[in-house]
Design a protein around this nucleic acid. Sequence first.
DNA 1: TAATATATAAACTGTTCAGTTTAGTTTATT
DNA 2: AATAAACTAAACTGAACAGTTTATATATTA
Lengths: 207, 207
Amino acid sequence: MNAPGSVLKQGRKWDQVLEGARTVFMRDGFEGASVDDIVREAGVSKATLYSYFPDKRLLFLEVAKSECKAQSDAAIQQIEGSGDVREALTTAAGRMVRFFLSDVGMQVFRIVVGESQRFPEIGREFYASGPQMVRDMLIRFLNRAVSEGKLQIDDVALAADQFPELCKAGLHMQMVLGLRDAVSEEEIDRVIDGAVEMFMSQYGVAR
Amino acid sequence: MNAPGSVLKQGRKWDQVLEGARTVFMRDGFEGASVDDIVREAGVSKATLYSYFPDKRLLFLEVAKSECKAQSDAAIQQIEGSGDVREALTTAAGRMVRFFLSDVGMQVFRIVVGESQRFPEIGREFYASGPQMVRDMLIRFLNRAVSEGKLQIDDVALAADQFPELCKAGLHMQMVLGLRDAVSEEEIDRVIDGAVEMFMSQYGVAR
DNA sequence: TAATATATAAACTGTTCAGTTTAGTTTATT
DNA sequence: AATAAACTAAACTGAACAGTTTATATATTA
């Protein structure tokens, strides 16, 4: 079940540490979170934390990975199943937008972007356990739709990169930069519909 | 000419300080840059720096604003002029992509995203002097094209949000996260053409 | 040339914080 | 109950760093 990604680990308070770290990192960011805050939140001694994680950065990496995986597993699910492409894309877009705009999603994004220069593996691991998953899923989905004659796409990889971007449509940037603190359901729907509409108008087969 | 945005300012080494700060912030990020590094780079005393800028954050804000303004002034220029919509969009897309993927553009983005939680005005000022400018320019351009019957767009604001996102198409994310360290001209063209193609296939008027 | 502005180097203050160490305690296992 | 593994609190180390102060120097202006 809750495998620790890397080769670190022992004992029984691992989850407790990770949960405390999650809370504090999500609240205060990477630099903003002190290890002392984390141990206090986790109800654990500093020595225990350091017996699990060699340093703060690795601890954050573990938190980010587990968050990402949880979210993108949920977001990926079966696009499969539903026969209608338009419907499937709408569903997928909904999941994506809600993920991008969730507190956790945005906070992880902020931290990862901010720290990936100093700690490149943070960027890599985040990408691999988040955006990459979605991208791969979309590529599979689009390839299937193409081979079934439901879509017509020359460059599937490009299309798989375009769709998630369309799902941001300015909202993500505004939220991440703190220009707004909420987005209404109407706006979300408007963006989703706009994304699907635009995507289908290029790649949909004429009927 | 080089007005200092806010109401701070005096004497003759202002530019020198700003230039040194620019260099160091762009190289090391916000937290990574120490004020001592900056004064060393600028060839200026710490006291002088602090006589111009009340604190490090404000100093960075000034750097970010001036970078942003320079870049987005250049990027905005006249889309106007050229009568062909497709051509104008292609040109604009080229400027945008090259801006997103430039060292300065990415570094400012990284820092702003990373720090805008702790310092909300950084996010606001960045947005106002960068993305907002582009957005407004696009809205004006699209409205004109619509009224001239060259494009058909219901929701111009949405379209103006979609186009820049299309210009990112995964590349921006990969670069910002440090998964790549360069993008070929071919890839850039592919993304630009893809963006224009998709945009026109929805909003272009049938001919 | 005297007076005023601006600049400088360098030492200092105060704080924050990651990571370590120590000496002792709790929990599980046999 | 004995033993070992995991945990604890708390003090400590060492370094980094923002911002201040002081005493001095160099331009600029009147």
